[in-house]
Structures are given as structure tokens and as C-alpha cells.
Design a protein around this nucleic acid. Structure first.
Length: 573
DNA sequence: GCCGTTTTCGGCCCGACTGTTTTCAGTCG
């Protein structure tokens, strides 16, 4: 929530939600939703724009422009304040529950006076919902299951949210006099897909000015506990942040300790113990005489334990310590290795940027190639037709330049039986095809496996898009025999996507690792629906790192010639 | 509330799925 656009978009979304609960004009609700999305992904800072510049934003007209101006100058919105007064606080949180829309949220409030998630869970337990009109025991039981999953995810934020928050705080702490280093540790540094709380580490001789600056940070709402080396704060967005101030000479040891994971740390300490050492957050010591072997840097500590340096995303005790001992850690793919992006959208389907804008953004990232893969017709909410797609292909041809290869493609929909949009002849006309599951997520494991294998084996399909279909904190992964799918992908020269969208990160790291072990290749893609979304590949690359993925396993690190041969299926493992 | 080779009003994303119904309402993507 550091960008003004994110804050404005959040207010516009809240307007939409409150209007929908209040039973307002659904088209007006949608107008606010669309405007929120457009603002969120707009490349310029909206609080620096005047009325005319705001009108340039798609889906923002004169009314919403005026509201953004009011927000920018006063920090609040009259109409939103009025709506908040009309709709009970807490009722909004019910809309976040999958399966509960405005109508049912309103119904539950009106008839059962439920205004919060705990009250909703209680109503489910008391079997009150099944008596409401349109409800039965099945829908009530289903809601109970959804609520259970929802509770498990609660209190954790997405990786991207935590990164932005941590970087903002570190920016303020790094400029405090006496600070030698400032970084984040914990699950955030390991690039876990969701983050519970944020751990910050600062190297400084005197902790007092650092703690003072921390308490004064714009994003810090209150400091709950403060000791001599540690402060615990809550941010304005309700996130817990632990700050530890460490003497510079033991910073490396502290970084190892607080980066974890717990299992990785235990394993390291066991190795230290066997060698007659003791490892703690203060350093690696010889037990016999208390002499310090290493403490200032992580590299020194791993080296003193006879290990090569273990990158944080690998520190889960899933074999990385053994590999480090044998000098067999993999070279990991990095975001700078990516030469292009093979899954992006434009205004032809549900993207917010035009083809020309996406191409310009790819060029400014110095990509060598870009795949344009708008949705195909079976995703009914879009209005894509074969004619529009062919028009787009001509537009792509016209934009071709030697510095940036454009690949014309589509994101197809895998039907329950594994079939795809369009016939084989039409499909063979594309340069790159992503095939994804967008519907019927609940199938038996066997049927789902057959469905995915049929799509993966289609001669024109190049990439299986967001394979598990999960939405973090919202929808679980589909049930499937992944090893069978990965084997089929390896055989047929189809890549598995590591989708970089913050609420997907799909494949997850552990499945990406399994895919690579089965000889399949991967594609790290942004799934960008706006120019700024292209940056999300940093999250995808981090997720791939957690899966031990090497650069050579990722098709969009390859030069264009090799990539084109792969896309034409002229590639054999 | 937005938007316009259907232009300043009257459209606006539409088909599938689920669970409840007996013809449909609500939700989702």
C-alpha cells in the first residue's frame, strides 16, 4: 500500500463493494470496479495528475476523476464516508468469502444479523443458514468448508505485499546515521509465497536511533514492545513487523539465524555440533576455547561449516545442505536471465494496455521477444472472436522489428474433456499457445489428470498455464497426478508455466522442482494484464528458485532461435 | 458511472455451474 494508486484503487473498490451490498445499480458497481483496476495498474501516480490527465485513464470519467482529486487533496471521500455510515462495519468482510456475493451477504445480515466472519462461522455451526430461502444443508456445509480454508489463510499476506512493505520500511531505516546494513530476513527473504510477519535486521552499534526512527515510520501504527535490541510494531495495514538491531560484527550470524527456515537452522547447528562448534545468532564458536570462527557474513559461516553458500530460497532443509556439502547446489535461474515473456494480455481481451503499449513496455525492459496471448472465445466473459484474433495478428505483423521478436498467440481454455477453443487447423496458425484451466476446478483426480494430459499432448500447445489453478487465500489447487502430467509434458515438448501473478505463483516451487526432475521445461511468465504487471516476473523467478530451477530449464531464457524451434515442436529432450 | 464507425442516451460480459428449485437465483471467471 505504498503507491498512491494502490490506495486510491482500494477506496474505489470499497465504494464498489459498499454499493453492491446496498443493492445499488450493478452497472455503477461495475464502473467502480473497472476504475479501481485501471487505477491500480496505471503507470503514472494518480495523485500527481490533474482532472484532464485523470480523464485519460481508461474507465475513469469525470465523476471518478473528481473523487480521485478529492482523495489526493483531502485524503478522504465524502460519498465513501456516507456509505460507510449506512453499511454495518464488518459486513464488507463477508464479500471476501468465496461463494458469498452481495445478495447473500445482505440476506445473512438482514435475517440473521451477522456482521462478521466469526459470527458467520457461528451461524454455520448453529445450522441457521440452511433455513434461509435459497439455502440448504449442502450450501451451508460448503460454506463451512470454505470458511475453514479462509481462516487458515487469514493473517498471511502475499509475497508481493510483504516485499513492498519491507522495502518501504527499510528505505527509511537505511538513512538513519550509524546504520551499516538493513535488510529483511525470515520467510520473506526465502521468498515464501505467503508471509505471516516481517522480520527486519539492521546492523548498527547504537540501537536507540534506529528504534526511534522505526517508531516514527509513516507506515508504523504502533510499537507494541520495545527492548534493547528488538522492537515489535504493527503497521497501518495491520501487519506485525519485528525489528532487530544487531552489532555489525555478528550481522552474518544473525542473518542466518533469522532467515531460517527453522529446519534449515536446526540442520546447520547439528553439523556445527558434530564438528565441535556451536552456532547461534551471535556467531560460530569453537566449543573448546570459545574462539569465534565466523560471524560477520553468511558466506563465512557456511564456509566454516564446510558448505557452499546456500541461497535463501533453498533454505528449507529439503536436501540443500547435503548438496552444499558436496558442492552440488544448482545454478539458479534469475530474473535477469529472462529474455522475454510468453504470456501477456492486451485490450483485445481483458488487458488494460493496448498491443502497442505492451510492445513498448517489453522493449523498454530490453526483452528480445514477447508473446501476446489474449484469451480465447470459450472464456465467455470476454468477447474474443476468430476475426478479432486475426486482426490482431496483422497488427502484430506490422509492429515486428529486429530488436524485439513478437510471437502471436492465445491463452486457450482447457474444457473438462481436455479439448480446446478452435479446431486444430486454426490453432496451428499461432506462434505460441498457452492452455489453461479456467472452469470446472472440481473434478476427480483421474479425470483432471486425463484432462491436463490431453491438453499438454495437443500438437499446437506450448505451455500449460497456471497449472494448479490455485488462487492464494481464495481457491485451492486442483487435484491431479502431477508426475503423470509432467512426464507427458516432457515427452511432448510442452512447458509448464510458473505464473508470476502475486495471487497465483503457479506452479508453486515444490511442483516446479518436481517438473524439472521429470525432465520437463518451464516458462516463467508474467500473465500481465497491464504494462506494470511485466515486473511480476521477479516473483515468478523467486518461486522457480525455491524449486531449484536452473536457467537452462526455463524456455524464456533461451535465445529466440532455440525458443522458436521448441515452439514448433522441433525440439527433442 | 463509463462510453461512443450502434455517439450525449441507452447500452453495458455472458455462459456455466451449483444447489436449490420445478424454472431459477446467485456466483464466478
Amino acid at each position: 500500500m505504498t503507491r498512491s494508486n494502490d490506495e486510491v484503487a482500494a477506496r474505489l473498490s470499497e465504494m464498489a463493494e459498499l454499493l453492491s451490498i446496498g443493492g445499488g445499480d450493478p452497472y455503477r458497481v461495475r464502473a467502480y470496479e473497472k476504475a479501481a483496476r485501471a487505477v491500480e495498474s496505471y503507470p503514472l501516480e494518480v495523485d500527481e495528475l490533474d482532472a484532464r490527465a485523470l480523464d485519460e485513464i481508461p474507465a475513469v470519467g469525470s465523476h471518478i476523476a473528481a473523487k480521485i482529486l478529492q482523495l489526493a487533496s483531502t485524503g478522504h471521500l465524502d460519498e465513501l464516508d456516507e456509505l460507510r455510515a449506512q453499511v454495518p462495519a464488518g459486513l464488507r468482510s463477508l464479500l471476501g468469502v468465496p461463494g458469498l456475493g452481495p445478495k447473500r451477504a445482505r440476506q445473512i445480515y438482514d435475517e440473521l444479523h451477522v456482521t462478521s466472519l466469526p459470527e458467520l462461522a457461528e451461524a454455520v455451526r448453529a445450522e441457521q443458514l440452511r433455513h434461509l430461502k435459497g439455502w440448504g444443508d449442502k450450501s451451508e456445509a460448503h460454506l463451512g468448508e470454505v470458511l475453514r480454508q479462509y481462516r487458515e489463510a487469514a493473517g498471511r499476506m502475499q509475497l508481493a505485499t510483504a516485499l513492498a512493505l519491507a522495502e518501504e520500511l527499510l528505505g527509511e531505516l537505511a538513512s538513519v546515521p550509524g546504520v551499516e546494513r538493513a535488510t529483511y530476513a525470515g520467510s520473506l527473504r526465502r521468498r515464501c509465497e505467503t508471509i505471516g510477519d516481517i522480520d527486519l535486521l539492521v546492523a548498527a552499534v547504537d540501537p536507540v536511533p534506529v528504534m526511534d526512527a522505526f517508531a516514527a515510520c509513516r507506515l508504523v501504527a504502533e510499537v507494541g514492545a520495545r527492548g534493547s535490541t528488538k522492537s515489535v510494531a504493527t503497521t497501518t495495514t495491520g501487519v506485525q513487523v519485528d525489528l532487530r538491531v544487531i552489532p555489525p560484527e555478528v550481522f552474518g550470524a544473525a542473518l542466518v539465524y533469522f532467515t531460517g527456515s527453522k529446519a534449515h537452522g536446526i540442520h546447520l547447528r547439528r553439523i556445527a555440533q558434530r564438528r565441535g562448534f556451536k552456532l547461534s545468532e551471535y556467531g560460530l564458536e569453537r566449543v573448546a576455547d570459545g574462539s569465534v570462527l565466523a560471524s560477520a557474513t553468511e558466506e563465512q559461516i557456511y564456509a566454516a561449516l564446510g558448505l557452499s553458500y546456500v541461497p535463501p530460497p533453498l533454505r528449507e532443509d529439503t536436501g540443500e545442505i547435503e548438496a552444499a556439502a558436496n558442492g552440488e547446489l544448482p545454478e539458479l535461474v534469475e530474473v535477469v536471465d529472462l529474455r522475454g515473456d510468453l504470456h501477456t494480455h492486451t485490450t483485445l481481451s481483458d488487458g488494460l494496455a493496448t498491443l502497442e503499449e505492451m510492445v513498448a513496455a517489453a522493449r523498454s525492459r530490453r526483452y528480445r521477444y514477447l508473446g501476446i496471448t489474449d484469451h480465447a472465445p470459450l472464456l465467455a466473459m470476454q468477447r474474443v472472436t476468430a476475426e478479432k484474433v486475426l486482426d490482431q495478428r496483422r497488427a502484430v505483423e506490422a509492429l515486428r522489428r529486429p530488436d524485439l521478436e513478437l510471437l502471436h498467440g492465445s491463452e486457450l481454455n482447457i474444457q473438462p474433456d481436455g479439448s480446446l477453443d478452435w479446431d486444430d487447423d486454426f490453432l496451428s496458425g499461432f506462434d505460441v499457445l498457452v492452455a489453461s484451466v479456467h472452469s470446472a476446478f472440481q473434478m476427480s483426480r483421474d479425470d483432471m489428470t486425463k484432462r491436463l494430459i490431453r491438453a499438454v499432448e495437443h500438437p499446437s500447445v506450448n505451455i500449460l498455464g497456471h497449472p494448479t489453478g490455485r488462487s492464494l487465500g481464495h481457491r485451492p489447487a486442483i487435484e491431479c497426478d502431477w508426475e503423470a502430467v509432467f512426464d507427458a509434458a516432457a515427452r511432448s515438448g510442452t512447458a509448464l508455466e510458473v505464473n508470476s501473478f502475486p495471487d497465483r505463483l503457479d506452479l508453486p516451487g515444490e511442483l516446479a522442482r518436481l517438473a524439472q526432475q521429470h525432465g520437463a521445461v518451464l516458462a516463467i511468465s508474467s500473465d500481465a494484464h497491464a504494462t506494470r504487471h511485466l515486473d511480476h516476473v521477479a516473483l515468478g523467478a523467486a518461486t522457480a528458485q525455491r524449486g531449484w530451477v536452473r536457467p537452462d530449464s526455463v524456455i524464456n531464457t533461451w535465445p529466440i532461435g532455440r525458443l522458436r524451434r521448441f515452439l514448433r515442436k522441433e525440439w527433442h529432450p
